[in-house]
Write a protein that binds this DNA or RNA. Sequence first.
DNA 1: TAGTCATATGAGTAAGTGTTCATATGTTCA
DNA 2: TGAACATATGAACACTTACTCATATGACTA
Lengths: 117, 117
Amino acid sequence: MTKKDVCEIQYVNKKAVAEVRSRMLDNNTFSKMAERFKLLGDPTRVKILFILSQKELCVCDIAALLKASQSAISHQLRALRNSNLAKSRKEGKIVYYSLADEHVIKLIDMSVKHAEE
Amino acid sequence: MTKKDVCEIQYVNKKAVAEVRSRMLDNNTFSKMAERFKLLGDPTRVKILFILSQKELCVCDIAALLKASQSAISHQLRALRNSNLAKSRKEGKIVYYSLADEHVIKLIDMSVKHAEE
DNA sequence: TAGTCATATGAGTAAGTGTTCATATGTTCA
DNA sequence: TGAACATATGAACACTTACTCATATGACTA
């Protein structure tokens, strides 16, 4: 606790800290960023997003492609939809999902390229 | 379970599924992608990465900037270093951290822009 | 050498997460 | 209307995670 106090008052590099602090974003922005990345931070969801970046597909087909249960996929699709990354379209009893946010495609693309390096 | 079997054999849209499947990446690639995004998927870590994208700073200063404990920041820095997102440089008893992967800057930048929209 | 400081680290813990299982909802079709 | 089907959903569970606390490590300095 003493150490913490020291850190708060006497910075090792005051100038650099002040400089960074002045450019700092607000907590809310960082939270939104993290929230978005968190959705990409799961293998199942990143696969789903990759799939949706190529084709609009129904829940059943996505589950089949990923060899996962319908329930698991449905849960994850709900998360993606709640965060406005995916959107759904109902056609009879079939529900088709697609990307709601074209922005994500860029993130996925960058990530794919980097992962393949 | 019957439903699952149906899904695996009789796709709603065989053609689309086959098309996506042919472009599918291997599980390992998706895991790497998710692993990387997961590191960005926490407010503390995304803040740290944002900070490091601007300046090389020591643990103490980062902790002070984020009003977090030294221990918490040290733990997170270790995670970032272990994943080759950050690297450290020792100067006496001070340890300076900086970004190891310039690639991340792009992801952060994109995310900032999107969050501010 | 002893004390102080910056950082690292392991254990413990409370909160969060992704899945399964059982079941509900709503649609189609005989 | 009733059966079959696609999807949604809530509870429960195993697992993970981010933090705190206490302490270790290693470097500087008086």
